[in-house]
């Protein structure tokens, strides 16, 4: 057996080990129900509840933004983000937040927005429309 084969086998063994350990970083996209029951850090996918209030008052606290989000199962919870309000937040089609439940709110420190593409549903800009403004 050549040395290089031994090295190869060792590397494969390490690779398998590392891949298995990597699985611990892999999580399911979760929902609020799980977040409540486990109280641990999870990623929740959902949509913005546009009828509920959004709060961002930087004069009070520039790192506090709160909104309501409905997860994929339809459960609605308040989400508190300790960042400033992201750009184009209202336009988001889908939101992914990472964090955990505290009391009755989901406290998140990471947020990813999926925004509609530039072309979809876009109306043709009319010069006339522009002149009205």
């Amino acid at each position: 057996m050549q040395k290089i084969h031994i090295v190869g086998l060792v590397m494969i063994a390490v690779a398998v080990g590392v891949l298995i350990s990597m699985m611990s970083d892999v999580v399911n996209y979760s929902n609020f129900e799980e977040a409540i029951s486990t109280q641990s850090r999870v990623k929740v996918v959902g949509v913005l509840s546009k009828d509920k209030p959004m709060e961002y008052n930087p004069q009070k606290d520039a790192n506090y933004f709160s909104f309501y989000m409905k997860d994929d199962n339809g459960l609605e919870k308040q989400v508190i983000l300790n960042q400033s309000k992201p750009q184009d937040f209202e336009m988001s089609e889908q939101i992914v937040v990472t964090g955990s439940m505290k009391n009755d709110a989901f406290v998140a420190d990471e947020i990813l927005l999926k925004c509609p593409s530039k072309y979809k549903d876009e109306e043709i800009y009319l010069k006339k429309e522009q002149q009205k403004i």
Binding site: P58, A62, N63, I80, A105
Partner: peptide, 20 residues
């Protein structure tokens, strides 16, 4: 970061990033 802001609800480790 603003040392005077009240941060009851949030974790200590989540440091303030923004200031007004």
């Amino acid at each position: 970061s603003n040392p005077f802001a009240q941060r009851g609800l949030l974790d200590e480790k989540l440091l303030d990033k923004n200031v007004l």
